[in-house]
Structures are given as C-alpha cells and as structure tokens.
C-alpha cells in the first residue's frame, strides 16, 4: 500500500547519483573552502578581536596614566601656589622691614639734621649775642661817653672805672642778658 503511495515520492528515495554528487560537492566545499576561506576568516576575526581587546586595554591604560599625570600636575600646581603665597608673605615681611628701617634711618637723619640745626642756631645766637653785646657796649660807650663828656671830660680815673665796669658787665652780664637768666 505504502509502496504504491510513495512510488512517485522520489525525494524520499536516495538515489546513487545525487548521493555521489552531494558527497563530492559538500566534501569539496568543506575541505577547500574550509581550508582556504573559513579557517583564515575565523583566524582573522580572532586576531581582530584580540587587536581590539588590546587596543581597548591600551586606551584604558593610557587613560589611567593620563589621570595620574593630571593628578600630578594638580599637585605640582598646588605646591607652586603654596610656594607663591609663601614668597609673597616673605616679601611682604621684608618690605615692611625695609620700610621700617628706612623710616628709622630717616628719623635719625632728621634728628641729626635738627640737632645740627640747633647747634647752628646756638652758634649763630652766640655770635649774634656777641655782636649785639659789642654793639650795645659800643652804643653804651658812646652814650656814656657823651654823658660822661658832659660830666667829666677827660678824666683817666673815669676811664679806668668804666673799663672795670665793662669787665664786670661782661662777666655778670653774661648771665644777665641771656633770655633764660
């Protein structure tokens, strides 16, 4: 029954020709294309996979190196900044010092100049005093001369007395005419 049913159903019946040809064709395909194409392709894909993995690893490493470098940079920068602050601070201190020194020097100089000036003034006053004394003496002498001429014309005792007076005046008048005395 089934034999007559299947008599036309040739795909179910393996025939020698097709068995032979499919063996030949598939074996050829497997061996030749497998050897010449599939193997190199699989190998190339594997190599490329390896390449990509290596490249990714390298990139990751480079990135970590770079972040290390960046941290280092930042550290150096921070250090530099600190140093700068230090330097500025130092500079400020030394500048203050300098200014103070200068001020002191200037003060001292001023003091010195003032002193000098005082001395000069004193000296000039003394000179002026002497001058004035002399002048006043002369003037007093003249006045006295005139006064005395009138009273005592030409008496040597008078002259000596006057001289004596002059001397006394000189000695005591030293105190007497000083502004403070």
């Amino acid at each position: 029954m089934i034999a007559t049913l299947l008599v036309d159903f040739s795909p179910l019946k393996p025939d020698f020709g097709l068995l032979f040809w499919s063996t030949v064709f598939f074996s050829l395909f497997w061996l030749l294309v497998g050897k010449m194409a599939f193997k190199p392709i699989v190998k190339a894909l594997k190599d490329r996979q390896e390449d990509i993995r290596n490249a990714l690893d390298a990139a990751r490493q480079a990135r970590s190196e770079m972040s290390d470098l960046k941290a280092e940079n930042e550290r150096v920068l921070a250090e530099a900044r600190e140093e700068k602050m230090e330097i500025i601070k130092e500079a400020k201190v030394s500048a203050n010092l300098l200014v103070a020194e200068a001020r002191d020097t200037a003060k001292a100089e001023a003091q010195r100049i003032l002193q000098q000036a005082k001395v000069d003034i004193e000296t000039a006053k003394m000179a002026a005093m002497v001058d004035v004394k002399n002048e006043i003496g002369a003037m007093a002498l003249q006045i006295a001369e005139k006064v005395i001429r009138k009273q005592l014309s030409d008496q040597p005792s008078n002259v000596a007395y006057i001289q004596q007076l002059m001397d006394e005046m000189d000695r005591g008048g030293n105190r007497a005419p000083s502004p403070k005395a």
Partner: peptide
C-alpha cells in the same frame, strides 16, 4: 532509477545507475 533505500520505499537496485 535505482534507489539506495534497500527497497523500503518501493525502490531498489534496478538495471542501471544514474550519475
């Protein structure tokens, strides 16, 4: 055409081979 089914599906070895 001869069939390599051992006669199971109504085939079998016949007088010629078709390659």
């Amino acid at each position: 055409p001869s069939t390599a089914d051992g006669g199971l599906f109504g085939g079998g070895i016949t007088s010629f081979y078709d390659f």
